[in-house]
């Protein structure tokens, strides 16, 4: 009795199978090819970076490599000033962009009436479309004089770079965290309001915690955008490869970032020289930092996601 349907089912699929299977096979393998090619290309890039930049880590004594002097002409390659420069600019940008971006996202997603949202969202997306060089230009012409007038020795400082970078990463932070807020079910808001929460209490205690993983992704992508940016930063940070004196004023000193160093010096370097290798070495350092940020984001989001789905079951 049970054998009849079990026989009938396979025979039907076997009949339809050949035509179906060729199409399936082609599509499946196209997808596989696309996926694998990405992995292969990333692998090749990393190998290339290692080949070109690796010698720097072997040939330069470690003490010099992490030293505070970057004088390629004299053959002294200390990465510390560049690391500090990148760090100052990026951290500054994050400190400006994250609160501003989050507040904007909350306003857009939770408070703004629909007509304002319809105006603001395209505007913010347009901000993402402004070429970085244009923003750099703006920083050079408009922001730098302001900062100089405010009392800094020069307008081209880490702070100028941080502001420009903040505005570059804002669209990313805003639109991704707004998506995260939007994904929070309406029932949460109803539930909170129904027990007497005010709108702000609902946002702070219920909506934001529920959207936390999406917001973490938004922030991490914003940082990723900031740390890798080159042109705009090169234009407005003053390009001085020295470590500013430690203190509260250090953000108003000229600095030079890792990315700017590569861009500025790559054109004039002899291929295969130690200087050339060192520039690629900087590339490796950047790669490692971005990779670390991304995997940190993945881990934060991953554990929370797992906990939540585990909870549902």
């Amino acid at each position: 009795m049970t054998s009849k349907p079990s026989l009938a089912t396979p025979s039907r699929t076997a009949e339809d199978a050949p035509r179906l299977r060729i199409g399936e096979w082609i599509i499946e393998n196209l997808i596989r090819l696309a996926g694998l090619s990405t992995i292969v290309i990333i692998g090749l890039i990393f190998l290339f970076l290692l080949r070109e930049g690796g010698p720097a880590f072997l040939d330069i004594p470690l003490r010099q490599l992490f030293g505070t002097r970057w004088y390629p002409i004299e053959g002294i390659y200390g990465l510390a000033p560049l690391l500090v420069g990148s760090l100052l600019v990026t951290v500054g940008a994050v400190i400006i962009a994250v609160p501003l971006g989050l507040i904007t996202a909350i306003y857009l997603g939770e408070i703004a009436p629909p007509w304002q949202r319809e105006i603001l969202k395209p505007l913010i997306e347009m901000l993402a479309g402004i070429p970085s060089i244009v923003l750099g230009f703006l920083g050079w012409v408009a922001l730098a004089p302001l900062i100089q007038n405010a009392g800094a020795a020069t307008g081209l400082t880490a702070f100028t770079g941080a502001v420009i970078l903040a505005y570059m990463s804002l669209p990313t932070i805003i639109s991704i965290s707004e998506d995260a807020l939007y994904a929070v079910p309406k029932e949460y808001r109803d539930g909170a309001l129904a027990i007497g929460a005010t709108q702000w209490q609902t946002i702070w205690r219920v909506v934001l915690p529920a959207a936390r993983s999406g917001i973490v992704i938004a922030v991490m992508l914003g940082i990723g955008r900031a740390i890798g940016e080159t042109m705009a930063v090169m234009m407005v940070t003053g390009n001085a490869a020295n470590i500013p004196a430690f203190g509260s004023g250090m953000i108003f000193e000229p600095v030079r970032t890792m990315t700017a160093t590569i861009a500025a010096e790559m054109g004039e370097v002899a291929q295969g020289s130690l200087h050339y290798n060192t520039l690629f070495g900087i590339g490796i350092v950047l790669f490692v930092i971005t990779f670390a940020i991304n995997s940190l984001a993945g881990r934060i989001v991953g554990t929370r996601g797992a906990r939540r789905s585990g909870g549902k079951l």
């Binding site: 079910p185 949460y188 539930g191 129904a194 005010t198 219920v206 529920a210």
Partner: peptide, 20 residues
Amino acid sequence: VSDLRRRISMVFAIPTPLPG
């Protein structure tokens, strides 16, 4: 309104536990 909602409290069709 917050005070009103504390005194007339509501439970929904779909349970809405909050994160936590």
